[in-house]
Amino acid sequence: MDAFTAGLLQRIQTTESDLTKARETGDDFLADVEQGELDDLHRLAAEHGVHIGATSV
């Protein structure tokens, strides 16, 4: 796995965790921000052929 793929997968995992925490604490604004970031990361992964597998969110 190259550094780009590893970094992207790590960012996705971190963002999913942050999104879960925002939802659990009821922080709707932060949840929206994290969801937008996650959507962007998924788009970037798709554009570069990075398979992200199942997500927890």
Rank of each mutant, 00 (worst) to 15 (best):
G26S: 08
R23H: 05
D2C: 08
A3S: 15
E47S: 05
Q35S: 14
L44F: 06
S56C: 05
L44I: 07
D18E: 15
E47T: 06
T14F: 03
D28S: 15
V33E: 07
D39W: 08
E47M: 10
V33C: 09
A6N: 10
V57G: 11
K21L: 15
A3T: 14
I12K: 00
A45F: 02
G7N: 10
I12F: 01
F4S: 10
Q35A: 11
T20D: 11
A22E: 01
I12S: 00
A46H: 09
F4N: 07
D32W: 06
S56I: 11
D28W: 10
A31M: 09
L19D: 00
E37T: 12
F29N: 12
G26C: 05
E47K: 06
V57S: 14
T20G: 08
T55Y: 09
Q10T: 14
F4V: 06
D27V: 00
Q10W: 06
L9R: 03
M1V: 11
R23P: 01
V50S: 02
I12C: 01
E34D: 09
R23S: 09
L38H: 09
E24R: 11
L8D: 00
L30I: 07
V57N: 14
H42P: 01
D32H: 12
Q10A: 12
T15G: 02
E16M: 09
A22H: 02
D2I: 07
V50R: 02
T25Y: 05
R43Y: 08
T14L: 13
E34I: 03
S17W: 07
T20M: 12
D32V: 03
R23A: 05
D27T: 03
E47C: 01
A22Q: 04
K21M: 11
A45Y: 00
G49D: 04
A6E: 11
E16R: 10
